[in-house]
Amino acid sequence: MKRNLVLFGLFVGFLGVSWGVQFQPGIAIFHSFVSFSWSLIKVVPCAFIIIGLFDVWIKRETVEKHLGEGSKMLGYFWVFALAATTVGGLFVALPVAAALARKGARTGMLFTYLAAATITRVPMTIFEATFVGIKFTIIRFVVSLPLLILASEAMAKLFPHFQMQEKE
């Protein structure tokens, strides 16, 4: 925590000095810092509010039944539906997965969700199909979906005591 604060202080100081002496690379970093922070600020607060609501309203049994140890194939359907509608990217999918983990989702489902949230998001897929072509999108889905389920189940086998939580 303290180390991060020092690091962040140094970073902000560097940006300030760069601005003062018109150090171009520093100014470029400043611009990319502002634009990336802004793209996070637009999404992350909403995501955490929805996660908070999920925490208090959704019963543990519901998640456990559909995504827990005894869950059936239909569990994958829920995980993919949730992944496709996740906004942002990993930085939203990770806290969402942590929320699912608290409610008893099993490890294989968590990793499947994470992987799916990176590659099946609806707005992104529409952009892809429009600009690169629907054939490209179909190949990507057909090849990657079974593989990411396999990889996720392998992760669950490799890390039997896996626990997910915001640390720090």
């Binding site: 970073f11 990319s32 996070l40």
Partner: peptide
């Protein structure tokens, strides 16, 4: 729920900060 949202966000904020710095420097 809002309290939980804030608590979880505050806990992970340092890691978010690190990511933003990394992105700002590398991009």
């Amino acid at each position: 729920a809002l309290k939980i949202a804030w608590k979880r966000f505050a806990r992970i904020l340092p890691a978010f900060g690190l990511m933003v710095m990394a992105v700002a420097i590398v991009l």
